[in-house]
Amino acid sequence: MRKPASRITAVPKTKASRAARTLRGVVVVLDPGHGGTDPGASREGIYEAALSYRMAATLAEVLKPLGAEVRFTVRSAALRRKPISGKSEPALILPRDATLPNGQRLNAGREVPEYLHARAAVAARAWKQKRPHVVFLALHFDVSENPNDHGGFAMWDIRENHACTLACEITRRFAAAGLSGNRRPQPRPNDLGVLNPQFNPVRQKTLVELATITNTADRKKALDPKWRWRVARILAAAIVACKKARLT
């Protein structure tokens, strides 16, 4: 006797399932600053590379449930440690094992064009694959000679004014959330190798200084996982806004 065919029911369109489609088809290339034997900027025993790699890992966990494909410009165990929102996190570690995708180790004093352009090449490959939407975010933490400087800001290559769209969207959201402090978005001359259009053709790309760790209050925030998750969600919302505007 033939068994009756199983009934196939559609998955209900829940709020969560709709959210999961918001970044479908988007490749987000995350470029955590420094790594290897290059710790980046430091204050009071806090190192930029440790912060930027943890932020990249956190942001990836926000983006993936939205349907984004996340690619990193570097490899490190620090990026494989998946933070979980609301749960305790392991101590920050310096990503001393960080390498470029070709296996080349990152060395102190060598954050020079050849390294930066190799990072940009990860975005270029995604772009050449003719993905419908590609976004590039370099994640850093800034220092300043003025201890009163605080907050984060975004930068773009001055040769590409269209690239300020994502940077300005992030800046607007940072200001609304009280994250920009007294820092301002900056078009920069062609000295930010990861944004060089010759090596990184992605239209929506920016380098974000997330906080100023020479400021005591900012340094404390940067060490707080709750702050990192909040910033990651703001960055993700900016990417969603750019996709909706068909700007990526």
Rank of each mutant, 00 (worst) to 15 (best):
S85L: 13
G45Q: 02
R172T: 09
H133P: 01
L192D: 11
Q104P: 03
A118I: 03
L51F: 14
G36Y: 15
D97G: 10
P90A: 11
N182K: 14
P197D: 15
A98H: 08
P4K: 15
R110D: 00
Q198C: 12
M1R: 15
P4L: 15
R54P: 06
T212M: 08
D157I: 06
K205P: 08
I46W: 13
A108L: 13
H162K: 15
R219I: 12
K226H: 00
T73K: 05
R119I: 02
A78W: 05
L166M: 04
W156S: 15
E160P: 00
G67K: 13
V27N: 12
K128S: 06
K64V: 14
V26A: 04
R228T: 04
L59P: 01
S6F: 09
G151Y: 11
M155P: 02
L106I: 12
T212R: 05
I239K: 00
L92W: 07
E48D: 08
T37Q: 02
E169G: 06
V29Y: 07
P147Q: 10
P132Y: 08
A238N: 06
R228E: 07
A98P: 05
T9W: 14
S180T: 12
G40P: 07
V62C: 03
S52F: 06
E61V: 07
I84F: 11
A154I: 01
A57C: 08
A124G: 07
H140W: 09
L23H: 06
S76R: 08
E48C: 10
K220N: 09
S6C: 03
A241I: 00
P32L: 15
G181A: 01
A41W: 08
L100G: 05
E44C: 08
P95R: 04
F174V: 15
M155G: 05
A50C: 07
L23E: 03
R75G: 11
R119P: 04
V26R: 03
R110M: 02
D142M: 01
P101S: 00
F174Q: 15
L94A: 02
A236Q: 01
R233Y: 09
C164N: 08
N148L: 12
A232G: 00
L100W: 03
H34T: 07
T248Q: 01
L223T: 09
Q129E: 15
R131V: 02
I213K: 05
A124V: 06
A118H: 06
E48S: 08
D224Y: 11
P189G: 01
G103N: 09
V29H: 05
S85E: 14
V134G: 01
A120T: 03
P101R: 00
A41G: 12
R2I: 03
E44A: 12
V29N: 03
P12W: 14
V135E: 02
A167H: 10
R184K: 09
D38R: 09
A238K: 04
L106G: 02
R125S: 05
V29E: 01
L100N: 05
F141R: 04
L63M: 00
E145W: 15
W127T: 04
G45H: 06
E69G: 04
L66A: 00
A211M: 14
H117T: 04
K82I: 13
K15C: 13
N148Y: 12
A238M: 07
L23D: 04
A163I: 06
H117E: 09
V62H: 02
A175P: 11
R131M: 08
L106S: 02
A5N: 15
A68N: 05
P147E: 10
R18D: 12
